[in-house]
């Protein structure tokens, strides 16, 4: 299964992330995970949200420079070595990881790891063959991250 990540080009100046979250809050879009990678004066904000298409549209309408890209959202057991098995597998097949980040599903004793790779179809087939579960955007929006589970 392939999922979608939203990336936003942002200059390194105060208020850029706040501007993004303001738009999404107004649209009642849930953010599942986020990472920010920065260069000297600019960076890219990556988001996993429950409705990527609508989020992309809202951010674009707010004048932001947005890109929707395909990623793998991989479910791995939340235990030592869980992530290692995934990365070793990709390394062995020469799949290059551009970016990776994750969030824990506490109640499930599992984690979801988002990986952006250079050969997504190959990686997807490889993971499924090796018993990893990958989530599409719909499945991602159906699961509840831990901080929602507590209430």
């Amino acid at each position: 299964m392939i999922s979608y990540q939203i990336s936003i080009f942002a200059e390194n100046k105060p208020g850029r992330l706040a501007a993004v979250t303001r738009v999404l809050a107004k649209e009642k879009i849930n953010i599942r995970a986020t990472t920010i990678s920065t260069s000297d004066t600019f960076g890219v904000i990556n988001l996993i949200v429950d409705d990527p298409a609508r989020a992309g549209e809202a951010l674009t309408n707010a004048g932001m420079t947005v890109s929707l890209s395909r990623v793998l959202a991989v479910v791995i057991p939340d235990q030592p070595g869980g992530l290692d098995r995934l990365t070793q597998l990709l390394l062995a097949e020469n799949v290059n990881i551009n970016n990776a980040y994750g969030f824990v599903l506490e109640g499930h004793r599992k984690a979801v790891f988002v990986v952006s790779v250079d050969q997504i179809e190959k990686a997807e087939a490889l993971l499924e063959k090796n018993g990893f579960q990958t989530l599409d955007s719909e499945a991602l929006s159906a699961i509840e991250p831990f901080h929602y589970m507590k209430y």
């Binding site: 990540q5 990336s7 080009f9 260069s39 890219v44 990556n46 420079t65 947005v66 890109s67 551009n98």
Partner: peptide
Amino acid sequence: EVQRAFFGGDLKQLETLR
């Protein structure tokens, strides 16, 4: 200014352009 359509979500691509 970066061209809107050029942005592919990738920091590396921007760094290469820079």
